[in-house]
Computed example of a mutant assay.
Amino acid sequence: MIARDLMTTRVIQIQSTATIAEAVTLLKRHTISGLPVVDAKGRLVGAITGGDVLRLFQQRAQKVYYSLIGQTHVIIDESVYQDRDQLLSLPVQKMMSRGAVTVSPDTPVGEIADLMLSQNVRRVFVLEGSRLVGVITRNDIVRWLVSHVDDPRPTPAESGPGGDA
């Protein structure tokens, strides 16, 4: 099994100049956790996830106080959440993860799984040359694995008379 056989080819993507609000809208509308980010020429330049959005808000909300002995405590400034429109109007390129993890259409699934685990990512993007042609998520690999596992429960004939052995 290779990437081409497993990838989703209808990839929802977003322009790097779009706003974070537009990215959140796409994530919600399509019930996905991340989007590839492309430049004006359609080249993959990064990815944005729901985790990135949450991290942005938390980083802005944290107020760290220091003393002579170092960090003493962190306070969360809830007003950041009330002023969310300002953060949501930022362009995606300001907060996306750069250097998205990519594979070719001929990459074996085992290599993809290893890459996801070693890079701690939930999705890889499939590129043919510089063109984005697909995406593979951890869930895609798990679904494929489960669909190829034999059911471990015994059939009625194997369990003997009366059903349960």
Results as ranks from 00 to 15, higher is better:
Leu117Met: 13
Val146Trp: 08
Pro91Met: 10
Asn120His: 14
Leu87Arg: 06
Ile48Tyr: 01
Pro108Ala: 10
Leu35Pro: 01
Gln62Asp: 11
Leu68Ala: 14
Phe57Arg: 02
Val101Pro: 00
His148Ala: 08
Ala100Ser: 09
Arg131Thr: 15
Met116Asp: 06
Ser130Glu: 15
Ala113Gln: 08
Gln58His: 09
Thr107Met: 02
His148Ile: 06
Val53Ala: 09
Lys41Cys: 08
Ser104Glu: 12
Thr107Arg: 03
Leu54Pro: 00
Val37Asn: 02
Asp150Cys: 09
Leu115Lys: 08
Thr107Phe: 00
Val37His: 01
Leu117Ala: 14
Val64Leu: 10
Asp39Ala: 05
Val64Arg: 11
Asp83Gln: 12
Ser147Glu: 15
Leu145His: 07
Gln62Leu: 13
Val101Lys: 07
Val103Cys: 01
Ser89Gly: 07
Val142Gln: 06
Gln82Ser: 13
Arg123Ile: 06
Val133Asn: 05
Val149Cys: 11
Gln82Thr: 15
Val142His: 04
Asp106Ala: 10
Arg98His: 10
Val142Trp: 06
Ser147Val: 08
Lys94Asn: 12
Arg84Gln: 15
Ala40Gly: 02
Gly134Arg: 02
Gln71Lys: 15
Gln119Asn: 12
Arg138Glu: 11
Met96Asn: 01
Trp144Met: 11
Val135Phe: 02
Gln62Ala: 15
Asp83Val: 03
